[in-house]
Write a protein that binds this DNA or RNA. Structure first.
Lengths: 144, 144
DNA sequence: CGCACTTAAGTTGTGCACAACTTACTTGTG
DNA sequence: CACAAGTAAGTTGTGCACAACTTAAGTGCG
């Protein structure tokens, strides 16, 4: 057996480690806002455009209702959003931001710079990394 | 506000997405072995060298006893390892592989190639990605 | 020696991920 | 219209991650 299989494992482990390290950098900053990283991602989606259905949010983030339903209830309990049954389609739940939820966007503006500062990579390297990861994720999804 | 902060967020999200997509590719293969991805990582550490203390395994993988203690109990329940209190230092628990645990290494040998096939990247790109992720993870850890 | 300090592992509690399932609503087809 | 099929959201159960804490064993200094 060559060492090639070993290398591939390390790519997967490298992704797993880097992802956890990145969210660990975000954690103390997000804690000031009272958000977890997945909650922050949902807020980013809503800040971009709202109201949104649970399924739409899930498609943006690659999460299903099993993850999002309880998460959205927690955001509602924090007073950041409201869940309203759609009138046209009673199956849908439209997620609306509250004024407090909209306001949080301002406080969150400076957050992403923390990662850039902590990353130890140049802007070009970060850009290339993002691009490679995007291609990788798409290919992995195609592989089911 | 420029769009630079936005980009940085996307790097973090790209890591998060790629990591989940990669473990999703591993999942059905590991399911045949009855392992989850974190359990597989622990087995990789043990296949390399055993017995190991819980703390040593944790240092290799960046996990603490809060994660590893229950995980190791599940591996023990699967009959893959044994947890024995060390004689010299009664605080330590040495994790030994069972014959079944050692045998699983053979079945697991072909696993990492699946990711390579599904990745849609060249070997050089994977190698460079691994290297960049390693630098990134180290820098993020330095930033506490 | 005695006792504070440190360390290894485990426990508890919260919040994701994800599979599998349920419920309720909508849509398409005869 | 009726009803099978499809769809949106929620529920249940398992297994990580991680913070905060506990327990028990080793270490070092006065």
């Amino acid at each position: 057996m060559t060492d090639a299989p070993r290398l591939d494992h390390q790519v997967c482990f490298a992704l797993y480690s880097a992802s956890r390290a990145a969210t660990a950098v975000y954690r103390p900053v997000l804690e000031e806002l009272g958000l977890t990283y997945p909650q922050y991602l949902v807020m980013l989606v809503l800040w971009e455009n709202e109201p949104r259905g649970v399924k739409e949010i899930g498609e943006e983030l690659g999460l299903d209702s099993g993850t999002l339903s309880p998460l959205l209830k927690r955001l509602e309990a924090l007073g950041l959003c409201e869940r309203r049954r759609s009138g046209e389609d009673e199956r849908r739940v439209a997620i609306h931001l509250t004024p407090a939820g909209r306001e949080l966007s301002g406080k969150a503006g400076a957050i992403p710079q923390r990662l850039a500062q902590a990353a130890g990579l140049t802007a070009e390297e970060l850009d290339q990394l993002r691009h490679t990861l995007g291609r990788l994720t798409a290919a992995l999804h195609d592989a089911h």
